[in-house]
């Protein structure tokens, strides 16, 4: 068992030398790519393709002062709360 371990270690060292001589980083990357299919993923919407996204009508918070009030009204009239960035404070619900 001990000999086998030594043999394994020698084999591993040889493999490492081979890896070093052939470029450790690229080998590691190829292993990474084989286990992680998303490794080559790149942003698929380029900066020059974002004119639609930059239009104010695509903003989820176009008018913060009005949105905060609207959320406050819903939070006051409904039992549910959270996950909507709602405003704090009292409820005016007496």
């Amino acid at each position: 068992m001990r000999l086998l371990n030594k043999a394994s270690i020698r084999l591993l060292l040889v493999a490492c030398i081979a890896i070093l001589s052939s470029g450790c980083a690229s080998t590691f990357e190829s292993i990474n790519e084989s286990i992680n299919p998303l490794a080559n993923l790149e942003p698929w919407v380029k900066p020059y393709e974002r004119s639609n996204l930059a239009d104010p009508i695509m903003s989820m918070n176009r008018n913060p002062v009005a949105l905060a009030y609207a959320k406050h009204v819903f939070e006051s009239r409904e039992g549910a709360r959270g996950a909507d960035g709602g405003a704090g404070g009292g409820c005016g619900c007496n």
Binding site: N52, L53, D55, I57, M58, M60, A80, R81, G82, A83, D84
Partner: peptide, 20 residues
């Protein structure tokens, strides 16, 4: 104690308008 989960989406239509 409460937990809320939400999802949202904004979509720019082929003409200058949006649905959300």
């Amino acid at each position: 104690s409460s937990t809320a989960y939400s999802i949202n989406a904004n979509y720019y239509l082929p003409y200058r308008a949006a649905i959300y």
